[in-house]
Amino acid sequence: MNVTLRDHRPDNPAQSHLGFIDCDVHPFFRTPADFDPFLSARWREHRRSIGNRSRQGLARTSPYPRMSPGNGMRGDSWPKDGGPPGSDLDLMREQLLDLFDVRYGLLAPLVGGAAAERNVEFGAAMAVAVNEWQCAKFL
């Protein structure tokens, strides 16, 4: 979708606002099964058995773990429902989109492992699934 920003008019013209654009917002899944509706049966089965395989020793996390829970997440960003930070759109609105009146937040989903995946067909399937998932869940 193309949007011409120059033509945008604030809903409240009296409000003084820069109308900024947040260029790095990370949506997250609640569980890896969130991607299943967007995978074929063949790749759902692959995700559950072999799973993501990248070029590092640990299967699901970095061998250099970050210093805060959730692999580097801010402590106040955990949803009350127990899901990981970035997984709850309402909380994202409350803490970011509404609070700062963000005009556009650009989603950068660092999930699904598509780019690091050694099995390139599975990587391609996960890339499609992550794109479909962010459309369905966030856009």
């Binding site: 559950r48 058995s49 072999i50 799973g51 395989r53 990248s54 590092q56 020793g57 640990l58 299967a59 699901r60 996390t61 773990p65 970050r66 210093m67 805060s68 829970p69 959730g70 692999n71």
Partner: peptide
Amino acid sequence: LRRGLERDNLETSAYPVGAP
């Protein structure tokens, strides 16, 4: 606990736990 590492099972890539 402060790093939250107890939330991950630190499984190895060499032996995917779900592989038959």
